[in-house]
Design a protein around this nucleic acid. Structure first.
Lengths: 309, 309
DNA sequence: CTCAACTATAAGCCAGAGTGATCATTAGGG
DNA sequence: CCCTAATGATCACTCTGGCTTATAGTTGAG
């Protein structure tokens, strides 16, 4: 007798085993399964050939068939397997309706504060079963790499990204503004007037590069007196009169009354905020809803006076 | 899209899913499974048709394929199912070698005391995984019914049983002996001398009927002064001088020095002790070993001076 | 552009799964 | 004791569908 080898076992065998065991009869099991009695007989026969042992005692006549010890043991496993498959059906159904699963989102500070909360809130009410996990990074390349490797399902990014690997959904153009200490005019500030003025800025990141390049292109040489990655710290510095700050609009906390938000004249090229997903990768159904919500929410928080590029 | 319906799911699909997910390539998975690449491609295709969704993203070129969310969920279930099947293989292997499982034995008092312990002890050392459960009853019919219904795998019984339903393994013939209070000759006692003598006997059970019928057939009218189902109580009564007791030899506690065991002359027809199992029922492999041990042990405890009938 | 590494597809073969018709066995009843 | 009803096994047959080989299609790297 060969060593136990269930390679040729098939689910239909287990279903037959279960049905026959419960009905106590090949014929009734066949009826339940929608097969002929002959088919079930052969299925059990095949199962016994695979197993190498009888799984049922057939007493003959109208008496019900009974499980052998081997059959009894197998039935336990069959029940477990079939129940697991039923579970898979349930999960599949739920996944199809976006009712379960996980979405990992790459994001960065201003999006985390201004855009994500609204999206998450609406996702939670629309598809409560989907867990949304945010991974924050101020380094654009990390987010792009995360999407590329599959660690992230979607990511908010700033600026350009190679479009051959990614689907890019444009969300908004976020203008750069100047923050000045409270007693200041609300009018636009002349960009050239920043030349030589004390500036407070972000740490090394995609935005600081955009700002510095933009200023330099206009002949303004930035004179940074302080740098931090914490936006609220920047506003505190401005409030304290340390100087002006050039920031993307979405990074500004407008509820802060002691600073004034001013457009720039001429404006810097706005930063572009996109949502990316890897091309060809199948995402959770809820990812589509997430994308739609991102577009919608981003449109609402964009600075209204600016016309998106 | 039809509601989730995994009726046509097959184990081979799950194996393919698992292999491809682990190898990251259809071709390598095929190699591992011993199929052609085409076969695996079609298997995954079939799985996706059954599921109604893609389970892998195929990026094309030398990049590895990746699970979709649906595929990821399915893989979890596939792992569980396949591991359960491997477990079934293990159990099967163990069952084949008699290494696990349960044996339910029907028995009665004298067998429980004189024969079973030795068998159980040896079974425990030979097939440690097999649990032996004894169900005791002094009513023969209960034991027979238990075997018939399948509640008992094997049963020790006294006397005849319809041989068309059962396989009968003869273990021994157990002679009836007379117990007398200690100061008594060890020689055989004349059976007819019991006529009119005070007798102590068992309660209503198969043995008491055998004894009474046997005595009556020899013209001896038993005069029972006490009955109990507890064998040690019977010996205590004899010891106290209440009278003689006619008992099956195996029911006697020979270590008791205050009673004398005497043959009968002429002897009563001995009681027959058999082991039965239901004909046509497949038993645990260890049942065969149990049967062999029962024959062996029974031969040893049979009263040596008697020749079995 | 070409090669290398993939997967998908097509055509053909054949095992095996299901059907329907019998056959064999057994219990129960006159 | 035979007859009937119930039930599983078996046979012959059909036809699906899974596997193989061969080939085409796609993509990334050099």
């Amino acid at each position: 007798m060969a060593s136990a080898n269930l390679r040729d076992l098939e689910i239909r065998h287990l279903q037959a085993l279960q049905a026959v065991a419960e009905e106590g009869s090949f014929g009734r099991a066949a009826q339940r399964l929608g097969f002929s009695q002959s088919a079930v007989s052969q299925q059990i026969g095949a199962l016994e050939r695979v197993v190498g042992e009888s799984v049922f005692d057939r007493p003959g006549g109208p008496r019900p068939v009974e499980l052998t010890p081997v059959g009894c043991m197998l039935l336990d496993h069959a029940n477990a397997v079939l129940s697991r498959i039923r579970q898979a059906e349930d999960d599949l159904e739920r996944l199809r309706h976006g009712g379960s699963g996980r979405l990992v989102i790459g994001t960065f500070q201003s999006v985390s504060v201004r855009i994500l909360p609204t999206i998450v809130q609406r996702m939670r009410s629309e598809v409560p079963g989907v867990l949304i996990k945010a991974v924050e990074s101020d380094i654009n390349e990390d987010l792009v790499a995360g999407v590329d490797s599959g660690d992230l399902d979607l990511a908010f990014i700033v600026g350009a990204v190679p479009s051959d690997h990614f689907d890019i959904i444009h969300l908004c153009s976020d203008p750069f503004v100047v923050l000045s200490a409270a007693p200041a005019p609300r009018s636009a500030i002349a960009t050239e007037s920043l030349s030589g003025a004390a500036l407070i800025g972000e740490g090394v990141g995609s935005c600081s590069a955009l700002i510095e390049d933009g200023l330099r292109a206009m002949g303004v040489l930035p004179d940074y007196v302080f740098r931090t990655n914490d936006n609220s710290a920047i506003q505190a510095m401005v409030r304290a009169g340390m100087g002006h700050a050039v920031m993307p609009y979405l990074a500004v906390d407008e509820s802060d009354q002691s600073v004034v938000v001013r457009d720039m004249n001429p404006p810097l090229p706005p930063r572009r905020i996109d949502l990316i997903r890897r091309r060809g990768r199948t995402l959770h159904p809820a990812a589509q809803r997430f994308t739609a919500l991102a577009v919608e929410v981003a449109a609402k928080v964009t600075k209204p006076t600016m016309i998106a590029v």
